[in-house]
Every structure is written in C-alpha cells, then in structure tokens.
Write a protein that binds this DNA or RNA. Structure first.
Lengths: 219, 219
DNA sequence: TCCTATACATAAAT
DNA sequence: ATTTATGTATAGGA
C-alpha cells in the first residue's frame, strides 16, 4: 500500500513550487484575490514535534480511525477492538460488538493445548494458532540459540495473566529494554559488516513500510 | 490553461450530483429497485450483502485501517492496539511499539551516520552507548516483581554481544513477540478497569456519527 | 492484481 | 468552529 504512494503521486502529478504559483496566479484572476497558496508538504511519517499540533492531529486522526474501525465492523461484519492511549495517557477504546475488549482478546484463548495462552496473543498466525512454541522448537537453530529458547521459555512461564498492571508495566519496560538492546547490537553488527565490505548506496524510499511487518495474518 | 478553474468546476458538479445520488439511494432503499450506480463511493453504512464484495471491501479497508493506526501511533506518539477478526474468523492485529528506530539509535553512538543512513535509519540522538546492562541493573524494581527481575537477569546473562547476526535476528523476533504480547495484555487490563468504572454502551444506528459514543476517555 | 474516478480526510488558514 | 485546498482511501471496473 505504501509502495503505491509513489506511483500514485506520479499519476496525480504533484505540483512543484512553480506549478503551484502558476495555478495560484490563475486562480487569482478568477477569484479576485491572490492568497490561495497553501501548500502543505507531504505528511512525514514521523513524530510531530510541536506539542499543540500533535495534540490537534491526534484528535482528528483518532476520530478518523475510530470511524473507520466502526465502518469496517458494520460494512464487513467484522469484529474489531481498538484501544488507543493518547500521548497524554488518556484511553480511548472501541469494540465492534457488544462484547468487551477482554472478550475480543479472549477469543485468542480457545486454542487447544496451548500452555502459553494469553501470553502470545500477538504471536498467532492467520489461523489463530499460537506458534511461538512451535517456532522455537521447530526452528532448527544453531546451538547457541538454545539460550534463546531458554529465554523465551522463561518468558512463557511467567504468569503474565496474573500480573497486576504495575507488574505488567514493569515487565514491559524490561522487555522493551531488551528489545532495544538487541536491535542496537544487531544493527551495529550489520553496520560493521557493511562497512567492511563496501559502501551501500543510499536508499531513502522504503521508509514508510515498516509498519506492515507488525500486521499478522494474511488473506 | 488554468487547471485550478477546471478543478473547481468539477467539484461543484460533484456536489450537486452527490445530492441527487443521495436521494436516488434513499429511493432505492425504499423501493428495493431502480438502483442507479452512477456514483462509486458513498457507501451505505450497512452490512454488504454480496459475499465477494464484502470480502474485497474487508481487505481494502482493513489495510487502510491498519495503516491509519500505524500513522497515528507514529505521528502522535500514541499507543495503539488494534485487533480485527474477519468474518471468516481470521485474526489481524497491530500493536504499536514505542521501540522506534530513534530510540534504538539514541543508544548507539558508534555507528557512523552514513552507515545508519545507508541502513535507512534516519534519526540518531547520540547520547549514550548501548546501555542495556546498566539500565537493567540500575532499575531497582519493586519486590513484588522479583520474577521480572529474574527475567531481566536472564536476559542479561545471555551473551548477546557474541551472537551471530542470524541469532540476534531470531532473538529479536522472540523479544518482539513477547513485547507485543505483554503490551496487549497490559492494555487489555487497563481497558477492563476502565470498563468496570464506567460502561459506555454504544448504539450503532445509521450514520457514521454514532461511533463517537463508543469512545471512552479517561485519565 | 492494477487503474481511475470520486468521495473522504485533514492540514492550514479563518 | 468553519472553510478551503489538497492529499488519501477506496468502489468499481479492467
């Protein structure tokens, strides 16, 4: 989807500065006033720095998002659960049917023989099966990965369901730290490799596509 | 010629037609016949009857919804959790991660900017070294979470720096899954709390306006 | 799939 | 809050 943007932009001939000026001038003749130049740049996919602006956009986009979620649930008869925390920490939620959020999430539970239950809600494939354990066991990994299995095993054994919110928060912090560290180290290693071998060419256009990796399930 | 003028004229026509279309649609609904499909968009806010069409709609709208969710999380620095069950019962989910590239690279100052750029990693806030170990050790957690400390301890003991890139990648996958899961559960619990406090019931009717009643805000 | 026309969302200006 | 200009999402068709 994001990849389409480039192409679409070409088709729709995004106006450059000069182009815009010309049109503005033409419009001025038509309208009798020349103040019609409001080029707002492309929306950059990164955190909005200005606090106020961020807040405003959050409201609007949140509205839009909830509306879309609602429409999807009605038009396509889908179950949708959406939870959003504003940067200020306020909670907004939407659930399509009259089931609660917990019920929707709870649907993830009716998987047979799964020890880990809720823990890996996020790790199910499109058929709804938990696959983290299978992945871990079946992934014939190098020896040193057994360490990783232990790690994961421990994560799985923690009784996450029973934790208080505070504990969960703390746990999340820890895991976030771990993840950040691992990413850092991996990237560094890749960077080392890259440096040693050759210079890579700059490739700035795949920027907005990372999110798709966090979606699970396929058609 | 002035494209601007052309565009404006076109828009006006659209608006007039839109009006007619509404009436036509309304009439069609009443009589169950005489459906003129001159207008594409403007979809009735009700379940799509045709199965194939509904499936296609679902795919497209789901994509859009996930994209929006992602954008909201990035642009506005919000936490977003989105779970969708297709009518066929398949699960799709998105959980925003605070672990942005910027955060990761805020910890790594050793990588030359060019390399980072080459890897398509833009932001760096070079302030510290990779400091996971320090972070983890310094965080003196509440006693009730000794389990979590064990977890962290184990993470510490993994000799992450000696891993191959492949191993790191795998490890990263695991931790990402764990993080997403924990996040889901935490958000779910908070949502439960909120619901207990104030149960906001929603009443889907006809227009896309009523969804707003399904949002609940809280501190 | 891909494309196009059109409705819709929304950033900026009022 | 309202308006306007412009980008985006997406219905329908190829």
């Amino acid at each position: 989807m994001s990849e389409d943007v480039g192409r679409r932009r070409m088709q729709q001939q995004e106006e450059e500065e000069e182009d815009e000026s010309l049109k503005a001038a033409a419009a001025a003749v038509e309208e009798g006033g020349g103040k019609r130049k409001r080029k707002r740049g492309r929306v950059e996919l990164r955190r909005i720095e200005d606090r106020t602006s961020r807040q405003v956009r959050f409201s609007k986009r949140r509205s839009g998002l909830f509306k879309k979620a609602f429409e999807l649930s009605v038009l396509c008869d889908a179950e949708v659960a959406l939870v959003v925390f504003s940067p200020a920490g306020r909670l907004y939620e939407f659930v399509s049917s009259d089931t609660s959020v917990e019920q929707i999430f709870g649907r993830c539970k009716d998987i047979p023989d799964m020890v880990i239950d809720d823990l890996n809600i996020a790790a199910r494939d499109s058929r709804g099966y938990c696959n983290i354990q299978l992945d871990l066991n079946e992934q014939s990994a190098p020896e040193s990965v057994s360490e990783l299995n232990s790690f994961a095993q421990m994560a799985l054994e923690l009784d996450v369901k029973e934790m208080s919110i505070a504990e969960l928060t703390r746990f999340e912090e820890i895991v976030t730290e771990v993840l950040a560290a691992v990413k850092s180290i991996r990237i560094m290693k890749v960077a080392e490799l890259t440096q040693t071998e050759a210079r890579l060419k700059r490739d700035p256009q795949k920027k907005g596509d990372n999110w798709s990796g966090q979606e699970s399930g396929k058609e």
